[in-house]
Amino acid sequence: MSDATASEFEQLGASVSARRRFLRRFMRQRTALFALGFLVLLALGAVFAPWVAPYDPLAQNLDRVLEAPSLAHWFGTDELGRDVLSRTLFAARISLLAAFQAVLIALVIGVPPGLIAGLAGGRTDNLIMRLTDALMSFPPLILAVAIVAALGPSLTNAMIAVGILLSPTFLRLMRGTAMAVAQETYVEAARSIGCTQSWIIMRHILPNVVSPLFVQISVFAGVAMLAEAGLSFLGLGAQPPDSSWGAMVGRGFRYISHSPSLIVFPGLAIAVTVLAFYVLGDGLRDSLGREIRREE
């Protein structure tokens, strides 16, 4: 009983699932792919640090302190004669974990109230946004130092501070996205067939707010890593004997004129990793963004 013809279907024969299409688009973005590859390698390096690191990162060798890079010690040695390459690898664990903690905390604090504000609107929205504005009006560094001072200096506490600082952005993003999605015709269409409110939120609104969230997560992983480096540099983050890249830079700073390699390698690690997170975020945005557009 239809006027649709074979050709209409043939056309679709060539089409592929949304996920595969997303993948295909993402694969075409060389830089993002490269960034992802780097991050995966880094994560593997960090996880398998005990096996891949050439030396014990804590083994001191006071005969060979502050050596320049050599075949035996690719990244040189520090003031206690420890191998910088091994320390950098082990520090990656701490740095990545720290970024993960901060983003997780920001998500937990930011996403639910953001969604509630966006969906409830009215007075609830007003209240939540006022609180957020109040939080945002503190100078960030002072807030971070105050939180760490209150909770005591430890990496986790520092990351709680960073997470709190990042949470308003997630909150605003979720509020805005949820508001926009709630206005979509398909949400009204769901109401018109008799879906309940909770069904609409679970099945129609949540699945459509996650894509922008992923982009933000990737960018914020980079931001959190930078913040961790800064706080650790100031001695507010990772505490000895643990060491993160930021802490390594902080301690290496004392010997900067004698052996610059002490800060060059962890510094490079920070820069490249942060950049990788940003590039990955951009790539995700570009590959997801087009899914939403109505072209084709």
Partner: peptide
């Protein structure tokens, strides 16, 4: 409960279907 008797098709075929389903 009365919704099944009463259904609607919207103007814009691009925004009326949930893109994630």
């Amino acid at each position: 409960r009365i919704r099944p008797k009463l259904q609607m098709v919207f103007q814009d075929p691009y925004s009326s279907l949930d893109p994630s389903m």
